[in-house]
Design a protein around this nucleic acid. Sequence first.
DNA 1: ACATTAGTGGTACGGTCGTACCACGAAGAA
DNA 2: TTCTTCGTGGTACGACCGTACCACTAATGT
Lengths: 211, 211
Amino acid sequence: MPKRVDHEERRAQIAEALIQVAGRRGLHAVGMRDVAAEAGVSLRLVQYYFETKEKLLFYGLQHLTARFTARVGARLAAAGPDPGPRAMVEELLLASLPTDDESRTFHLLYSSYAILSVTDEALAAQPFIDNPDAAEHALTGLLEQAQASGVADPDADARTEAISLLAMAATLGTSILVGQRRPESAIAVLRHHLDRIFTTAETPERGAGRG
Amino acid sequence: MPKRVDHEERRAQIAEALIQVAGRRGLHAVGMRDVAAEAGVSLRLVQYYFETKEKLLFYGLQHLTARFTARVGARLAAAGPDPGPRAMVEELLLASLPTDDESRTFHLLYSSYAILSVTDEALAAQPFIDNPDAAEHALTGLLEQAQASGVADPDADARTEAISLLAMAATLGTSILVGQRRPESAIAVLRHHLDRIFTTAETPERGAGRG
DNA sequence: ACATTAGTGGTACGGTCGTACCACGAAGAA
DNA sequence: TTCTTCGTGGTACGACCGTACCACTAATGT
């Protein structure tokens, strides 16, 4: 057993285990022993790297959001350099829907943390609302940019539409999670509103294409 | 101490206690002893009327939804006989926002149950999705009725708009709950979409008024 | 070589939680 | 009246959970 372990790496590994087991059995049902078993380490190790369960949970939240933000960024990058604003917005919204294991886990756990934060002030004090606010701001910017480019309804209120789209995506995601709705149905609803806001179809050949 | 107690009344009283304490400290933090203390009865009594905690939680969910459905109905009735379709829809959506203690508790607990049902199959088996489906169906009907009356955009897809409005109301409610958004902001967003769907302003003097 | 310290394991402790068990009083049935 | 049964209280039990404690190993510093 080597000495001088990279603490941050170890903490990330344990946080990953927390996310996995919490995604399976629910955040409320996860204990230190479960996390240790999932990570393949001893209970003492989890205690060593996170002194308390509260700190483990906080770190897990940070790790969860960082991980998913990176994933969404990667999906955006994979959509090619400078896709249309509509494609960008659509990718952003659809990426948040729980359509595979990772997004499903993210949606479930993020919602769990959010609900928990209502009655847990220590969790509420965590930088939590920053993420929705950032998403709202980013989406508003994209819509305004689309309006300036003439591909979105210039009379629309970009901020209100951004809030609306994100709000719909969130609940639609939850309804997928609980099995009320199928992903295609949720996507159709979101696309309907994008069709309403964006005035032109995708025309990848106009403007600065791929050069 | 009188004999022959009305079981249903007692169960309702205990369920009420469950809702109160869960609304304050979170559904995850509520125990049988807390419920008993809140209801002013002994732990044994809670056991007597609900053999197990699981049954207590199930009954609490039923009680919660029944209670809130009744409240929304009362608010609709208080809006006067035959208000316009728009007023009806607006009342319905706004009633679901957490703007006072009772609606706040409802929103918090219903969300908690929903999230819990994702990883708890016994809870998922409970008639849970019926409520959103019923709301969706009812709202769709109201919108179609508004279209038939000529007060709503006839080109709109009533079902899609109903889903969208409910989805927005849900997430906006949660954002109020976590302190991200103020109720007025949420109401403004909803009203924006009602203005988009409904083509005429409220004209209470047309049609069959109060007689 | 020796002392120190980071890393790791095992385990015990105190508390809490859901449930089960035991006892007793009082209303209805005979 | 006597017996049964419903309602009620108190309490104990077993399990689990988060945390603390103790021991041991192996690198690091001098």
